[in-house]
Design a binder for these strands. Structure first.
Length: 261
DNA sequence: ATGGTAGTTTCACTA
């Protein structure tokens, strides 16, 4: 089973790119974030026509929104109410015996100080709850794949400049610490770094605000696929589809993909 | 220290 995760930054604008992902990589399951569409107007017909007849959505007007598209039947799991808000940042399904989650962690705003920036405080609280939830999932003992835009680049090689990003939201020590705690709480395997060495620079997001994103290559690895430890020996072909950043009308994020035997 | 782009409910907000 091939699983992809992608922050599409508006699913309606990205339908041609979704088609391109399917043509190139043919995932069985696609987890989306930032769909930016209410459930009633989610383009289910177009996506079913691409071969994904099983679709679960959780969207709101204008912001956030997650979805799972699948070739195989889905059973919806309970939505996780992070930070007591119904802001459509999580959706989980059961597919072919595996629990698959699409998660969108708050970006956190610009100022990395929870005392003066509510968005950063929200992000930190969200990550604390991610750790609690991870522990619960671990105790359930089911095979789980937790994917999404976690909005944190944990390793020095997950950003274009570790030194220059230490005070930039997404790579601050407090965020990386909470990221590590959540990962440890679930016993999660980083499915991508499991096969791509930590020495290798690796990004899944490049800002729209660069004159030439590829030349500057100031990226960050914000999008992740975590797997429960029982799946360790069944992961292969992890990849990040860098090319997608150069497609016409791109998202600022690219798909992250892994195969599970 | 600033400003750069993209998407959405746009003259404002989020990323």
């Amino acid at each position: 089973m091939r699983i992809a995760t992608w922050n599409v930054n508006s699913v309606r604008l990205r339908l041609p790119l979704l088609e391109k992902l399917v043509a190139q990589r043919s995932p069985d399951v696609i987890c989306l974030q930032e769909t930016k569409v209410v459930d009633d107007t989610f383009p289910k017909k177009d996506i079913a026509a691409m071969g994904y007849e099983h679709i679960e959505v959780r969207g709101m007007k204008s912001y956030n929104g997650v979805a799972v598209l699948s070739r195989l039947p889905l059973k919806r799991l309970n939505d996780q109410p992070f930070c007591g808000r119904d802001d459509c940042r999580h959706l989980g399904v059961q597919v072919d015996g595996i629990d698959v989650h699409s998660l969108y962690v708050p970006a956190g705003g610009d100022e990395p100080d929870p005392a003066i920036n509510d968005k950063f405080a929200h992000k930190l609280q969200f990550m604390d709850e991610m750790a609690v939830w991870s522990k619960q999932l671990k105790e359930q003992g089911r095979p789980v794949v937790l994917t999404g835009d976690f909005n944190v680049a944990p390793l020095e090689t997950d950003v274009w400049s570790h030194k220059q990003l230490l005070k930039v939201v997404s790579h601050t020590p407090i965020e990386v610490e909470k990221f590590d705690i959540a990962q440890a709480a679930g016993g999660w395997i980083d499915a991508v770094r499991n096969s791509i060495p930590a020495e290798e620079k690796l990004y899944s997001w490049w800002s729209y605000r660069a004159r030439d994103w590829a030349a500057a290559d100031r990226g960050r690895r914000l999008d992740h696929i975590w797997a429960s430890p029982d799946l360790a020996g069944r992961l292969s072909n992890a990849s990040i589809l860098r090319d997608a950043r150069g497609w016409e009308k791109p998202s600022d994020h690219v798909p992250v993909i892994v195969d599970i035997d």
